[in-house]
Amino acid sequence: MDTPVNSIAVEVLRERVSQRLGKECVDLESYMGGMHHQTYKALMNDRSLRIIRVHCVRARRHGGGITPMTKLPSEVATLKYVKEHTCIPVPEVIDYDRDEDGAVGGEWMVMEYIPGVSLGEKWGEMTVTQKGEAARSIANVWAELLSLTFPAIGSLYEEGKIGQMTFFPSNNPNNMAPPDHRSCGPFDSAQAWLLAVAAEDLTFRPLPERSSFELARRKLVTEFIQDNDLWDNLEAQRLSRITLEHRDLTLRNILVEKEDPTRIVGVIDWEAARTVPLWAVRGDFFKSCIHIMSDGEREELSIMIREIVAERVPDWYDATSNLGRVFSTLLDQAEKS
């Protein structure tokens, strides 16, 4: 349910957390918030801490904020999958509630509390050596994610099943509805996915009007995607292996030890995670970091991460370099068509 943060019924939430966990929640402290959710730190009567994340779209105040119903269920399933199948530190999901009666003001989930601070918060205090070690830790997380393989393109749901692709909520005030879920996959091939992207099947509604030039351009892009000679070879299949993408793996979503910021203790905010071909996964770990690092530092650390990951997942390195450029260019063109 899309509601602004001030309509979250905090007392109702506290009562329901108590009911679901079988012990009293004695306090809910506003912890952190994003454009699409509000997070609380819950103190239980046994002194344990939990994190409660409530879906609430702040952007709704300014228009937009349309959210696919799949967003939070997929995030819950993705956290569970990563917890079970990798060594990447993610919070354990303890409970999830759809808020079907609307009493809380948004669907919510309960997670374990991971003590730590965001890497972005610590960055300005770190030495050059520590920053290099932190970059190496990020590379290890990224490489482990890229080592996962899936049978279809879409998003994760319960029991590791691949279902329709989910998305970030829209911040466009002109949007009135999410993409039609019947057209959002799962897709059994990169070719099928790109055709759906080019056809705007994965675009929020209503669709913008297109000029005759834009429609002609789309036709050309579609014809190129439909060229089977592009896909029917072993090299294309290698570069198009389907993996899991965290779509916002930035310093703010990486929790580190307060005393040792080179050690990652949690990777958070998995909303809109998706399974896509290797060439579609473009890590941009230092975006929105202009205020805490120079362009030179950002470039140097990005190259370091890429080289470390290349040693462990060479297929991704190839897929995101010249060998896979034809595919990533097609994706760019499909998104613009």
Rank of each mutant, 00 (worst) to 15 (best):
335 E>G: 00
174 N>F: 05
36 H>Q: 09
70 T>I: 02
111 M>P: 00
292 I>V: 15
86 T>N: 07
258 K>F: 03
198 A>V: 03
176 M>W: 04
217 R>Y: 13
336 K>R: 08
310 A>G: 06
144 E>H: 01
112 E>L: 00
88 I>E: 00
334 A>Q: 05
145 L>T: 06
56 C>D: 04
190 A>F: 06
259 E>W: 15
25 C>P: 01
159 E>N: 15
31 Y>K: 12
57 V>H: 03
244 L>G: 03
297 E>I: 11
269 D>G: 03
94 I>W: 04
314 P>A: 12
260 D>A: 12
229 D>I: 03
167 F>N: 02
184 C>D: 02
328 S>M: 07
79 L>D: 01
11 E>V: 14
181 H>L: 09
105 G>M: 01
148 L>Y: 06
234 L>H: 07
132 G>R: 03
124 G>K: 10
253 N>H: 10
199 A>D: 12
87 C>S: 15
238 R>C: 08
43 L>E: 06
259 E>C: 08
225 I>F: 12
137 S>R: 01
121 E>H: 13
62 H>K: 08
103 A>D: 15
124 G>R: 14
238 R>N: 10
218 R>H: 07
7 S>D: 13
241 R>M: 11
302 S>I: 10
283 G>C: 08
299 E>K: 15
230 L>Y: 13
165 M>N: 01
206 P>K: 11
242 I>Y: 02
275 T>M: 02
47 R>Q: 15
273 A>Y: 01
254 I>R: 07
302 S>W: 14
26 V>G: 12
10 V>D: 07
218 R>V: 03
159 E>W: 11
240 S>A: 03
168 F>T: 02
99 D>K: 08
68 P>I: 13
6 N>H: 10
105 G>P: 03
274 R>P: 00
210 R>G: 04
337 S>R: 04
9 A>V: 02
198 A>N: 05
153 I>G: 00
33 G>H: 08
43 L>V: 10
169 P>S: 11
324 G>E: 13
205 R>N: 12
125 E>L: 03
69 M>V: 14
283 G>W: 06
201 D>L: 11
99 D>A: 00
2 D>V: 10
206 P>G: 01
165 M>E: 04
213 F>Q: 14
142 W>Q: 13
233 N>K: 04
122 K>M: 15
170 S>V: 03
322 N>S: 14
86 T>M: 06
228 N>T: 06
132 G>H: 10
